[in-house]
Amino acid sequence: MTTIILAIVIGGAFGVVLDRIGATNPKYALKMLALTNLHLMKTILLAIGVAAVAMFAGQMAGLIEVGHMSVKSAYLGVFIGGLMLGTGWAVTGYCPGTGLSAAATGRKDALFFIAGGLLGAAAYMASYSWVKSTGVLDSMFGGKATVATIPGTNYPALFEGLPGDIVGIVLGLGFIAIAFALPNKFVGSKEPHGNAQPAK
């Protein structure tokens, strides 16, 4: 029962924040990807940085249970799937979480997004055995790998021996720094072929 209450509270807060940062309006994601308005990019980078610094600092202080981390496996399909998601994201302005939330705010095109998503999930379920047989799901970097060794976990590390919590804080500060350093736009609305490129 407690977990259901937590799901309602944290999920509800997530939905409210997604709406208030503009993520339920496809305009912001599309302009972010077209590099004409980086408001959402700066928001996301700051969020990742703040969460990373607080989580790893909390772990070092013994306030956050390391066991609550859940690192996903690395395999070639992660990158291929990322390319597919990025393609659809750049066309529609939705990703799974923001598409569902946008539909809830009354956007009708997002309902079609959800219907397509349910069919896409079904297609993956139907083709899973074949996808697996191609080898794209085979682990890389030792599977559930992190950048450095996180104390109290068994996650394999790309840089073994480096302290994962301190590296996590440094990377988090890096995300925050990039959020501050990024301009509001790289590409002007009148000049879609500007030379400026994102730092990352």
């Binding site: 395999y75 291929i80 799937g81 393609t87 529609t92 990703c95 997004f113």
Partner: peptide, 14 residues
């Protein structure tokens, strides 16, 4: 179509 490719990709990616 976008929803299809996005969620298929997300599931492939995990």
């Amino acid at each position: 179509a976008g929803g299809f490719i996005i969620v298929f990709g997300a599931r492939l990616a995990g």
